[in-house]
Each structure stands twice: as C-alpha cells, then as structure tokens.
Design a protein around this nucleic acid. Structure first.
Lengths: 248, 248
DNA sequence: GAGCATGGTGTATATTGTACACCAAGAAAA
DNA sequence: TTTTCTTGGTGTACAATATACACCATGCTC
C-alpha cells in the first residue's frame, strides 16, 4: 500500500521522447498551479511531466507512476539522467524568475531527479485522450518558453539520449515492434542530427544479428514495399561484444 | 554566505578512487554516528564520504565541499553517477538492517546522490593527516562489511567508472601530471580488469595526440628509465572525433 | 505503359585492429 | 668489468571494419 504523502522537496521530471518517422518530438504538459498563499491559479503551457515523490516510493517507481498517469502505459523505457539541485538549474536569466519563485516558498523543490523516457508513438496516440498533453518537435524547443528549469532539464535529457544512443540499442524503443530499415535510418538521423549513406548504414545493421528481418512487407504504400525488421533484445544480450572503443 | 542548515532528507555520498601504480583503491572513512534518541554512539568503520546537503547549496557544491574537507583538495574530478531513493538501496538482506534504521527515524535520508571522484594519489597522501580516512583496494570491497547502502553505491560508482573510462579520457585524473606509458597501461588494466598487448596499447596511445611525450625521463629506477608523458585536455578537446561506435 | 517514389544492392580503397618476439638501457651483483 | 636482471621500447603481416560512391528493382498512380 502506497502512502500518498508527498516529499515536498524532491521531485521527478520525465522528458518523454517520441518519433513520428520524420522527426523527434517531446511530450509537454499544460499545468495549472495554485499558489497556496494567494489562491491565484497560474497556467503553465509547456512543462515536463513531473511530480513530487511519495514518502515510501523509490525514484524509479515515481517516474513509472508519472508516466502511467500520462500515457496509460507502464512498460516504457525509462532511465535516470541526473539529479539537480536548485542552483544547478539556473541556466538563463529567465530561469532566475523561477528560482525566486521557489525561494519565496511557492514551490519548495530542492532536488529534481530527471528521467528520460522513450516511447513508441504508434502505441500511445490512442491513449492520449487528455487534451492537455501534446507532442512538440524537439527543434521547436529552442524558441519555446518553458517554466521552471524545464528547458535546462530537456537539454540535459537530449544530451543523455544522444550519448546513450551511440552505445546502447535504446533507439528501438522509439519504433514500433516492426519497422523498416529506412525508418531506422531516419530515426538515427533525427536523433543525432546527421545523415548516413544508405548502403553503409544497412551494412552496419546487417552485422547486428539482433535486428532480424521478418517475412512481412509493407502494404499500401505507393512504391516498392519495404521489408519489416524486428529488434530482439535477447539476441542482443547474447551477442554483444561489450567493446566500445576508447582505449580498447 | 552559505547557511549550514542541512536538508535532512537529501545527502551526497562520494566514492573516491585512487591508483597506486599497482591497483585501484577507494577512500573509506570511519564515522561516528550519534543516535539522537538514545544518545548511543555507533562507530561505522567503512563508510563513503558523505553528508547532507545544505539548504542553499547545489549538489555539485555539496560534493566539492565534502571532498575538500576530506582531502584538502578542491580541483578534483567529480561527477554525479546517480540518485537513489530508499527502496532502490536495499540490495542484500544485510542492507535491510539499514533500511529499518532509516525507517525508524534514526536517519531520515530519502534520496542519496552519488558522486564519483578520481584523485591523484601522489598529491593527496601528504594532506591526509586524519587517521580516520584510508585507502582500501577495490578488490577487497566484496568481503567488506559496509554500513547503509554504501556497498551498493560503491558498485554503482565502479560500474559508472568502467563505463566512462572507455569513452572519455578521465583515467588520467588518477595519474600524476607526468606518467609513463607502462603506468598508463597498468591503470587501464586495473580499471577494466583485463590486460593489453604492450605494442598495440602503445600504438593506440600514439594516435592520441593529446598524450604528449616530454623530454623528461624517469630517474633512480633500477632499469632502463621510461619516458614521461603528459595528458593535455586542450589538445583532446580540439582533436576529439566524437565518434563512439554503436551505429556510427 | 510511362512516370514516380522508395527499396535494395556491391566493389575498391583506406583505416584500424590484432597477433606476435626481440633488442636496448641502465642498475646491481658477482 | 662482465654478467644478470628488469623494464623500456619497437615493426610487420594479416584480418576486419570503415568509407566513398551509382544503379537497377518494384509496385503504385496517372
């Protein structure tokens, strides 16, 4: 049984990424905050999904709970990317406003633990009945006003994602169970902001025995249909070489 | 001006690694804890250097403060490796004892933020006048009793170190300013628990233009003296290729 | 059946990884 | 002063991987 007594000075924020076969997107939430002193309601348009942790809850559970509440899904890829104390979070003069806000006792977070979530867009769209949650292209974040330290957290999450994607097969979490090689390539290009030679990319993938071709092909496309592939984590775990070139 | 009012439910623990040219070591601290209720003094022999954060302090500053207090040094390599809520930290039945201890209100930490510190052994030995702080070989930790969740944190830190060392040139933080190639090789072997072919290792290092040979040689050794080398972070930053093979 | 859009393939060259063994220099001991 | 000991330092052949690059195939639409 979980007590819903919150820990007032610790919160978890989730940076949720999705991929629509064209570009990378983030899930942002419209939030209403009630100032407990004045009773005024503040509406914050673009915030990360986040909440305080409960007293008898660990951090991963808090993040899982938040994502379940948001998407209805509870087997989402979720990984901590950092903990941030209040002074860390002042990254631009505008954010200073939110620091003041916190210091005035409006909000009393001291530490925020950031979680990176990767979700399969095709699975979640149906569940999103709530109008207050929507996708925004990652490229749009630069010009977006975000409350608190959320812009800072977003960029930290993006950096972590770009780092991890080079070293672990987590990008597949952003794709449906079956995907084509062009989709996979577009995903990596969107993630890393580069472009790859098609033949060389496919040669690399061919060496990854955990990316397995299926018998199925695309249907209803106005061009030659592509073959579907599947990512097998089991095969990955068995065949990984563990060698990630820096010194070895 | 820093207030010394501590935040009771957030602490920072530092896992400090050192290298003695033979093996990897960790710095452990003997701690006395006073149970505020009974007044009994508990002596904990092997704990990580850690403390609560102060109210107006960010996490990095807390870690820096703790390390400065411990070693006298304040330009030490320091990097967060994770935040852990209380349920995360129960890794073995023995640790359960400490969870109870926390739950009884003896200690009321809810979140611990772990920091990985790498220090140049040769610089710090002199400063360590305090008898309550000493080095232990990393290989000895398995058989060691450690209080709280510190054994768990230690292994998390070691994993983080082994991961990072493959991808970033942080191992040099464990060596003196001038070092020989054999020392560098022994360090990597100690860090990763493997061994390398001398010629191939040196071929790799030769391609790292940020590892720069000096004119100086070893003196007073009973064999052919080795050449000293130097790690230049500037050169590293300028010449890094940023390519860490997973997909690219 | 022509046009269009995407799917899918191969080869030559450069770079990097890997396996492997011997001489060199200096200090210490005989 | 010679020998021995210990560590320092080097090169080559072969395999694997990375990179650059251009064309035909398939299935739909008009």
């Amino acid at each position: 049984m979980i007590s819903h007594k919150i820990v007032p000075n610790i919160s978890v924020d989730c940076v949720v990424f999705g991929f629509d076969f064209e570009k990378l997107n983030v899930l942002l939430v419209k939030r209403e905050m009630v100032d407990e002193k004045s009773g005024k309601v503040l509406i914050l348009d673009h915030t990360l999904a986040g909440y305080h942790i409960f007293e008898d809850e660990d951090l991963d559970s808090a993040a899982t709970r938040i994502l379940k509440g948001l998407t209805g899904l509870d087997n989402i890829f979720l990984e901590q990317f950092g903990a941030f104390g209040q002074l860390d979070r002042v990254s631009s003069p505008k954010d200073k406003m939110w620091l003041d806000y916190i210091n005035q006792g409006f909000a009393d977070r001291v530490v925020t633990v950031g979680y990176l979530a990767l979700i399969d867009n095709t699975k979640v769209t149906l569940t999103l009945k709530d109008r207050d949650v929507s996708w925004f292209p990652v490229s749009m974040i630069t010009d977006m006003e975000m409350a608190f330290d959320h812009k800072f957290l977003f960029y930290k999450a993006l950096e972590a994602l770009q780092r991890k994607v080079k070293v672990e097969p987590i990008a597949f979490e952003l794709l449906p169970d079956y995907f084509t090689l062009s989709q996979l390539q577009k995903l990596y290009e969107a993630l890393l902001g580069t472009s790859f030679d098609k033949r060389n990319f496919r040669k690399k993938v061919a060496q990854m025995h955990y990316v397995i071709p299926l018998k199925k092909k695309q249907q209803g496309v106005p061009h030659k249909p592509a073959q579907y592939y599947l990512f097998s984590r089991e095969v990955y775990e068995k065949t990984r070489k563990g060698r990630i070139s820096f010194i070895i």
